[in-house]
């Protein structure tokens, strides 16, 4: 895989203050399927600044998960330019710059909740005492104190997903990549987790990339909403939602400002023929 570099315009890694955490220019990803090439991503441009909460929304096949996985170095782009924290996604992954939260909790069933949260710390070779200390702190942060010695199956789906968030936070990455983390949960649990996530984001100041297919969830959480469309996977609209403020409660969803942004998201989806079948 070769990602063409624009050497002359390339900023030195982490040299410039306020440099984007994620910097994407002209990114594309094509793969060969049985019935011809699939354009998963086509000419994607995006800059994400530090501390932003960016949601990616669009119908299935729009490439939102693929884009997140390219940032995470779990997929290789076929062209374009991408920098994560000023380096290639591969280097960013190797120096463990991000925590990834999957659609399912992906907890290891043979480990207790505590040992699941400590898994990345074990891999990074952190001492047992510090692992204990950090896992306790993270489990408290996601309100799972007292469940340390339970096995995953003994917890509800929402609690399992919170444990997986604690696991991603345990090594304190600057960047959180979340791939429809609450998609499998019911709406009541999801609302609750959204509020908790927002509080967590405000407290920790992390940069979050969040893939969802729920418009209210995207508007409620984000400072920036990226609307995407399929065939080829591309960005239709980038909506600034920072005017809603950093700290929000669920009531904000009734305000005209919220509804206006939600409306614009819906317009974007319609313009991208997302509602066509």
């Amino acid at each position: 895989m070769v990602v063409p570099m624009r050497a002359s315009t390339e900023p030195a890694p982490r040299a410039v203050a306020g440099a984007p955490v994620v910097d994407i220019k002209g990114l594309s990803l094509t793969y060969e399927a049985a019935d011809g090439p699939v354009y998963a991503l086509s000419n994607v441009d995006l800059q994400i600044a530090e501390g932003e909460f960016v949601s990616f929304i669009g119908p299935s096949g729009c490439g939102k998960t693929t884009l997140l996985r390219v940032v995470a170095d779990l997929e290789q782009p076929s062209g374009g330019h991408i920098r994560v924290n000023g380096v290639s996604p591969n280097e960013a992954r190797l120096r463990r710059d991000y925590g990834f939260i999957f659609q399912a909790p992906a907890l290891y069933p043979w480990r207790t909740i505590r040992r699941n949260v400590e898994l990345p710390l074990e891999i990074f070779g952190i001492s047992k005492a510090e692992r204990r200390e950090r896992s306790a702190r993270q489990l408290e942060l996601v309100n799972l104190k007292g469940f340390e010695n339970k096995f995953p199956w003994q917890l509800s789906g929402g609690m399992q997903q919170r444990a997986s968030i604690a696991r991603a936070l345990s090594f304190d990455p600057k960047l959180l990549l979340m791939d429809e983390p609450f998609g499998a949960l019911d709406e009541i649990v999801r609302d609750h987790l959204n509020e908790q996530l927002l509080r967590l984001w405000d407290k920790t100041g992390k940069t979050v990339l969040f893939v969802t297919h729920s418009i209210p969830e995207a508007v409620f959480l984000s400072t920036k909403i990226v609307v995407m469309s399929p065939r080829p996977g591309r960005i239709i609209d980038i909506i600034d939602a920072s005017s809603l403020g950093r700290m929000r409660d669920l009531d904000i969803r009734e305000t005209p400002e919220f509804l206006q942004i939600a409306h614009r998201v819906r317009e974007g989806l319609r313009a991208g023929h997302s509602y066509d079948d």
């Binding site: 992954r93 925590g99 990834f100 891999i123």
Partner: peptide, 11 residues
């Protein structure tokens, strides 16, 4: 997913 997780930790 369980394997990707290990990859994200560059295990």
């Amino acid at each position: 997913m369980q394997r990707d997780l290990m990859r994200t930790y560059s295990a």
